[in-house]
Nucleic acid binder design. Structure first.
Lengths: 173, 173
DNA sequence: GGGCGCATGTAATGAGTTACATGATTGA
DNA sequence: TCAATCATGTAACTCATTACATGCGCCC
């Protein structure tokens, strides 16, 4: 239901059509989530059927018609419920990238160090991108919170990886 | 392919049957991953078909027969390849719990604080469980690494949540 | 005698992705 | 004129989950 929460939350702010929602999420929220087009269209359709949003087809000249969605009062109630559920929950993070670490002793430590340095470079790049000046969409309170969360998370990741690499260098696994 | 890596890595250490592998993963690796029984059995079957492992049916008295898996040299090669791929990769963490934060201004801050404190309690509990004395399976080098990773991650999460709660208290969103 | 642990599996379902299909407008 | 952007959608597929089914041994 987190995708529904996301879409409803954005529609609360402003009526939008599917393409627009998809674009916003994948451009301005890429650092924390994503959604594919068919998924977005599909969920919007279902929410319209459930009465959470209204669907109005709009034609602008000869352009392809677009379906503009507007949140209903029922949708607002669902949003309020989903938001409260989301805020009080915590889901354990599963880092699939960790699996390999369990077997790191299966390869020579010099090689492991090289591979982990490659991983570190990707991580560092992600961190740098995050710290680049960003769009105005991120100046809103909530968005800043999420941005800060990612920043802290990535910093912790880098610190940890550096620690692992240091320990491997000292053969202190 | 991370599940394959996991199963191969465990089989490298010791021949095991499906039930045993499933049990080990869900008991001793619950803090970082999980696997359901049908998934485990299914992957093992496929790996046997691919020749990565051999499957030998063993009967112990009148008990249900069990299929013991042993890694082959081909499986070892696949393991080595998967391990290297895994170590040099990094996948961006997606925290679905963050979505709600984007819309935190939609509810009164006192209520948001209460909800986030509930979230913090869950987080703290997870952290405490992680720091409890743990099974001997975790004394191996790689496992200790993953355990340490989780610890660092959870600490960063708690620190960040505390920060958010403090800012909400000061109405400084 | 009833429930739990051991041991394996099948079938249905679900969430989401990829690949594909369509067609108009806009800019180089 | 060719590619990119706008705009929506269907169909097939993957991965993993839940629910279901089976049957023995063991302990209370």
């Amino acid at each position: 239901m987190n995708r529904e929460l996301l879409l409803l939350g954005l529609l609360r702010h402003k009526d939008m059509h599917g393409y627009e929602l998809h674009e916003f999420i994948n451009r301005d929220m890429a650092f924390c989530t994503d959604i594919k087009k068919p998924t977005a269209y599909n969920i919007l359709q279902k929410m319209a059927e459930s009465g959470w949003v209204t669907e109005i087809e709009e034609q602008d000249g000869n352009r392809p018609p677009r379906k503009v969605y507007q949140i209903t009062s029922e949708g607002e109630q669902v949003f309020q419920k989903l938001l409260r559920e989301n805020l009080q929950q915590h889901h354990q993070a599963r880092f699939t990238d960790d699996i390999g670490l369990a077997f790191i002793d299966a390869i020579p430590s010099e090689e492991a160090i090289l591979l982990l340095k490659k991983r570190r470079a990707i991580l560092q790049h992600e961190f740098d991108v995050l710290n680049r000046p960003h769009s105005k969409a991120h100046s809103r309170g909530g968005m800043k919170l999420i941005l800060e969360h990612q920043r802290r998370h990535l910093q912790a990741e880098i610190d940890w990886l550096d620690d692992v690499i240091t320990r491997l260098t000292k053969e202190d696994i």
